[in-house]
Amino acid sequence: MTNGAELTVTGVDRAFGGVYAVRDVTLSVAPGELRAVIGPNGAGKSTLFALIGGQLAPQAGEVRLDGARIDRLSAHRRARLGISVVFQAARIFHGMTALENVMVGAHATNGAGFLAGALRLPVHHREERLIRERALECLARAGIADWADRPAEELPLGQQRALQLARALCAQPRLLLLDEPASGLRAGERERLATLIGELRAEGLTMLLVEHDVAFVMRLADRVTVLDLGGVIAEGTAAEVRADPRVIAAYLGAAPEETGPEAAAAAATATATATETQTATGGERDAGTAARAAEDQGQQNAGVREDSASARKGAEP
């Protein structure tokens, strides 16, 4: 149904204050593919997303959507080309209802401007009707139709995240970037999200998914790309990646031991946060720590705190 786009990232670099958050990353996602991007905190995942979504410009390298270069385009231009973003922190619009929030998502697909709105030209009425209908559908799809007329900031966190997803869907994207969509969600909400992502994949939408919950990722994704210290350290199917010694090393911060893949994955989830604290004291990985600090600037504390909480929960026997 949806006509998923092809994404090609070639050798992109992005540094903050001389420290690379993303370095020479190359990545190619086929139309309709669901690609997961995993890695320890501060591995450069969010920065990579920002480079694709247009919140940041790469200092080197290229980003192409269906073969056309987009890395010099501003975020709103990229949105018009069909890239939608679900941010890590629930970035919703205050002072507007949930429905209006989702209607903003349709901005990328419509064109009525100030004049059409001010003079109430026919195009304004036509578009408003269509946008409203579509926004209501998207709200229903995200499971929050009942909240449509409530002010967005009054929604509970889980619903705010669903709202963000509904907004992204209202843009009828061809490439959807999901930055930790499951963080802070309860088990039921998480299941519902997984089902929706599965449906979107079946419809042929290309998706890029960053997630800390490795089990969640492994279940959904076609292929997995693992980032560490701003670079790609492994890529392949879930099983291939799980068995990769470099991946285990990146998560544990030590040489891989003889463990089963399942155990490694579980350990990886549990120690994702712990690793960060450990490496902060390790001299050899100073660059990585700085990169993480650089990347964390852009992330909201709330999101990070939730991650640590869920990681800690995973560590309990």
């Binding site: 247009g54 973003v85 619009f93 843009a171």
Partner: peptide, 16 residues
Amino acid sequence: RAAATSEVAAAASGVA
């Protein structure tokens, strides 16, 4: 109005 709370999210939704 969207850009008034989050410029980044508004731009990502296609708002110039």
